[in-house]
Amino acid sequence: MYIKKILVAIAIIGLAVAAYFAYYIYGAMLKPNTAFNNEEAYVYVPTNAKYADVREQLVPLLKDIDKFDALADRKKYSTNIKAGRFVVKKDMSNNDIINSIRSKNIPLKIAFNNQERIEDLAGRIAFQIEADSLSLLKSMTNPEFLNKNGFTKETALAMYIPNSYEVYWNTSANGFRDKMLKEYNRFWNKSRLAKAEKLNLSPIDVIALAAIVHKETAKVDERPRVAGVYLNRIRKGMPLQADPTVIYAVKKESGDFNRVIKRVLYKDLETDSKYNTYKYGGIPPGPIFMPDVSAIDAVLNEEKHNYYYFVANVKNFGYHKFAKTLSQHNANRQEYVRWINKQGVNR
């Protein structure tokens, strides 16, 4: 009888211990432990981060950080941190959270377009991934990389085709740059390369010319016609005489790219810069801007015509009047000059 009581007591204690252990396991591992109302939250873990860095981000997201700490130690997460962008979903348990931030690095979509300089692009990308703008700029302008892949400091911007791309948040500066080189080579497929060759232009020349086309007109449907004007000029050996290149040259010479120049003055045409297509013939030494794909394809698929001149159409804003002769162009230009003078635009 005595032994039986002992066995019963042991059994009761065992059940109590098991119940406590089960409760502990449920509380520490399986019980929902999120404290936010949104469906999900993201945790960004920097390269070489310590557990304290991760914990700092988790504190406002969790109801009981102490239980999370205990499980993180037990599962050895606190000594094996992984960098990346991770999701914590509403009502996740500590166990699910650890599994997520340990091994489920989620890529994100980055986007960029219409940057004027490689420095601007580096700054835009730095807002979207872990790498800072200085390391990105250093990587993008690395002389060895540029030379190996057929670029120069002046043409480096041409390698970045405006679009949205999927990358990991913790992608390094070199990793981002190398991915963009692959995307550049993918963009320049056999069809586009054949069209560029037919124009006697390199891909970089096409992009440099597309940058001018993009700046000249925001109307996508007009870009092939504008591209045709410049290609006609190139074929005839005429200077491009593109106002956007003069504006870029003035900004570059002054070092002030924040300037807003709405009107090109005669004195601007004397700016001694290879980017000034009034003073120097041919395509500028590099793109003055990051053109949209529509502008690049407009050059590759130019509209065939006999126009050599164009000026803003004051009766159809956004579009231009095109001319085959200089006399016709001068008449169109006088109409534009009268209009802009009435607007009081001096600079």
Rank of each mutant, 00 (worst) to 15 (best):
S273H: 11
G123L: 12
G282M: 15
T245Q: 09
L71W: 12
N316T: 03
R55F: 12
D221P: 00
G27I: 05
D272P: 03
N276I: 15
I204S: 03
V250Y: 03
I101L: 10
A111E: 15
S294Q: 02
P60A: 11
L71R: 13
G318P: 00
Y308M: 06
N99K: 06
K104Y: 02
K90L: 11
E56Y: 15
Y309N: 04
I234D: 07
Y165E: 02
W169H: 09
R186V: 15
V264G: 01
L157W: 02
M159L: 13
I288D: 02
I12Q: 09
Y42F: 12
E222F: 06
L269I: 14
Y77Q: 02
I296Q: 01
V264L: 05
K76R: 05
T152I: 08
I98P: 06
L146C: 10
M290T: 08
K104G: 08
K321W: 13
L326E: 15
L30P: 00
I283C: 08
K279C: 14
I288N: 05
I25S: 08
S273Q: 09
V43S: 09
Q115M: 14
N313D: 15
S172E: 12
N170R: 09
L240C: 01
M92H: 04
K262A: 07
S133H: 15
I101P: 05
V311S: 09
N185C: 02
V229D: 06
R85Q: 11
E166S: 13
V226C: 01
R85H: 12
W188I: 02
K179V: 06
S100C: 05
V8L: 15
Q328M: 14
K179N: 12
A35M: 08
I204L: 06
M140D: 04
N38F: 10
I3D: 09
V250D: 11
N80R: 11
K315Y: 14
T47Q: 13
N276V: 15
A323H: 10
K219L: 15
N163P: 02
T34P: 04
S164F: 12
R223M: 03
V345C: 03
L201F: 13
I212T: 14
R347G: 13
A196L: 00
P244E: 04
P143Q: 09
K4M: 12
E116L: 10
F86T: 07
H305F: 02
I161R: 00
K75S: 12
P60K: 10
A295Q: 01
L71H: 11
T34S: 13
A323K: 08
V43Q: 11
V17M: 14
A194G: 00
K252C: 04
I207E: 01
N38D: 15
A22W: 01
M140H: 03
Q241C: 08
T155N: 07
I110F: 12
M1Q: 14
S294F: 07
G237T: 10
E302P: 00
N189Y: 06
S133F: 13
Y278M: 14
Y248D: 07
A194T: 02
A242P: 03
S172A: 09
I247W: 00
A70G: 06
P162V: 02
F187I: 06
E56P: 01
G255Q: 10
F68L: 14
M140Q: 07
K251C: 05
S103H: 09
F86L: 04
E302S: 03
F21I: 14
V45R: 04
N114K: 11
